[in-house]
């Protein structure tokens, strides 16, 4: 049901773009206004969310750890899993961001005949996630060629590597294919594993379908339907320099569908789980050193407590105490 709802939502998005261009001829709206609005929503939304997270106090060190914490000198510390210094935290964060280390330790629980419990390591989510994120990143970086003139030379090197299979005159780019396969795997995983299906919400399926449709429309545009790339670059360059001067009617509808889906994706990011791209850096369980035994961390919302010590009390009443024969500490 959740999956179906998300699929319908994405199909509606595609139809909006299709009808908007084919029937209503709203080229300027879909080619200029919506992309700008989407990027503005994306930027402001992400900053708002991150600042809001930043204002939330983190009372104590709450790192989730998988290894031995720093202890006595003869006990070996697991420095990356349970860091006690900033450099250790940076190492853990880098490995998390670039290699998804915490997914690598994913285990699968099985109840076997007997009854016996078995835990096995499963690397499929890690592998699928890695393939998905990295190919998406390469695809994103490749698109920078549409927004720069002259195009930085490293972009061409990426494209050569990406297309080194040299299939066809145009050259099939591996990243696009891997992206589509990986996002399909991540979707099928949610459908076919009962435990994962049980916890999957519409907010999990929708981004998957959205990214799937973005990848599909891009692949269709590049290999099958063909678009006038030079006109598109003139539009994207115009967008990047705030001076759109291209005749938008020249560009075919598949481009507008792709652009609208991408706009929808960008605008959706601040409101969705995709915020994990900022959130990973702000996860208290990942970005805090486990040094609770070395440093005193004071709860930030502790208000100052007014105290009146015995010394002050004695200062106030020393003479009276002496007169009454009560022993005092300071004469």
């Amino acid at each position: 049901m959740n999956a179906l709802l998300s699929l319908v939502a994405v199909i509606v998005l595609i139809l909006i773009a299709f009808i908007g261009i084919k029937v209503a001829s709203l080229h300027f709206l879909f080619g200029v206004v919506i992309p700008y609005a989407a990027i503005a929503t994306f930027l402001i939304g992400v900053i708002y969310r991150v600042v809001k997270w930043g204002r939330t106090p983190v009372p104590f060190r709450i790192p989730t750890t998988c290894g031995q914490q720093k202890s006595l000198p003869w006990i070996k510390q697991s420095k990356l899993d349970n860091p006690s210094s900033t450099s250790g935290v940076i190492g853990r964060m880098l490995l998390e961001v670039f290699l998804f280390r915490s997914l690598f330790s994913n285990t699968k629980f099985e109840l076997k005949e007997g009854p016996k419990i078995a835990y096995g390591s499963t690397k499929w989510l890690w592998l699928g996630g890695l393939a998905f994120h990295w190919s998406f990143f390469v695809v994103l970086v490749r698109h920078v060629r549409l927004f720069t003139e002259p195009v930085p030379s490293f972009l061409h090197s990426i494209e050569v590597l990406d297309g080194f299979l040299q299939v066809g005159a145009l050259g099939v780019l591996i990243s696009g294919v891997v992206l589509l396969l990986a996002v399909t795997y991540l979707f099928l995983r949610r459908v076919f594993i009962p435990e994962v299906r049980y916890i999957s919400l519409a907010a999990d399926y929708f981004p998957l379908f959205l990214i799937m449709s973005v990848a599909l429309s891009g692949i269709l545009m590049r290999y099958f339907l063909r678009v006038d790339l030079v006109s598109i670059k003139e539009l994207t360059m115009g967008l990047a320099s705030f001076s759109v001067a291209v005749s938008l009617e020249k560009i075919s509808v598949i481009f507008y569908i792709h652009l609208f889906l991408v706009s929808a994706l960008f605008a959706y990011i601040p409101f969705s789980k995709i915020m994990h791209m900022g959130g990973v850096f702000l996860s208290p369980t990942r970005n805090l050193a486990n040094n609770s035994r070395m440093e005193r961390h004071i709860n930030p919302w502790n208000y100052p407590v007014k105290v009146h010590t015995y010394e002050e009390y004695e200062d106030d009443f020393r003479e009276i105490m002496k007169d009454a024969g009560i022993p005092v500490e300071k004469e």
Binding site: L43, I47, V144, F147, E149, S231, S243, V246
Partner: peptide
């Protein structure tokens, strides 16, 4: 983050590249 997202705008500052 903002620098990376607005990279195309910063890179092309004030020179819209027309179609060759």
């Amino acid at each position: 983050f903002v620098g990376l997202v607005t990279f195309p705008i910063l890179y092309n500052m004030g020179k819209p590249a027309a179609m060759p």
